[in-house]
């Protein structure tokens, strides 16, 4: 089982995903430079947080033209698992691999804080270890996290169960106070139609050790690992 973490110019949470996978989960992980034309033989590709190209123009708008993004699209097309965190989520929406867009936080400020998100779809490779409605505590750290999709698209996404995480209070209730950025319907994370590409604004890789305040982010990585392990088992039978 191999993880790859893409490093765009300006990515800065690449290190955090890398360490979590290598040191906490003890899995194989490598960085993938943005100029690569292939993502190689890997099982999971993580697009990390950061400020690709300084977020100039628009978050993720330039990074999506990186050579490696064609390879990511092909990888996703063949069913490979792609996880976009924060800026990685923004790159995936810009690249059209995920629906919707991430706009400026409604209060116009960068916001770094612990939030709660509820798992609203636990049938994905990224969430299968969580119970439906499970509330996870994770940090957010972004200025452009306000999720938006036009009404028809939103309806379609709901029909396809593509809304994966919502900001809630500690009890799992969707409230305006629990929404850190003005996201439509408190949406914190979504997936593509096939369910193999997920993007979320909160940082599960920052919530993987007790000393950092929360271990709730691990459930996403552990889901991925058990999904892949299951697949490996099937393959070996």
């Amino acid at each position: 089982m191999k993880f790859g973490v893409i490093v765009f110019p300006g990515s800065n949470c690449d290190l955090d995903s890398y360490h979590l996978v290598r040191d906490v989960l003890n899995k194989e992980v490598e960085y993938i430079h943005y100029s690569e034309k292939s993502v190689g033989r890997r099982d999971v590709i993580i697009l990390p947080g950061g400020f690709t190209y300084g977020d100039y123009l628009r978050s993720g708008a330039i990074a999506r033209f990186s050579p490696v993004m064609n390879a990511v699209a092909e990888f996703a097309d063949k069913g490979g698992l792609v996880l976009g965190i924060c800026n990685g989520f923004q790159v995936l929406t810009e690249a059209g691999l995920l629906p919707g867009a991430l706009c400026r936080n409604h209060h116009l400020q960068f916001r770094c804080e612990q939030v709660f998100v509820r798992v609203d779809n636990n049938s994905l490779p990224f969430t299968l270890s969580a119970s439906l409605g499970k509330v996870l505590e994770m940090p957010v750290a972004h200025g452009d996290g306000s999720y938006y999709a036009p009404p028809e698209l939103l309806e379609e996404m709901k029909a396809n169960d593509q809304i994966v995480f919502r900001y809630t209070d500690q009890n799992g209730d969707v409230t305006p106070q629990a929404n850190p950025n003005g996201s439509l319907e408190n949406i914190a994370g979504v997936c593509n139609r096939a369910g193999n590409v997920v993007g979320l604004m909160p940082h599960p890789e920052r919530a993987g050790e007790k000393v950092l305040g929360s271990r709730h982010g691990l459930i996403i990585f552990k889901s991925i690992i058990s999904y892949l392990t299951g697949r490996e088992v099937v393959r070996n039978v």
């Binding site: 290190l15 979590l20 804080e113 993987g208």
Partner: peptide, 11 residues
């Protein structure tokens, strides 16, 4: 003030 600073990056 400090919620406008990313104080966690680099974990």
């Amino acid at each position: 003030v400090w919620r406008r600073y990313d104080y966690m990056v680099r974990t």
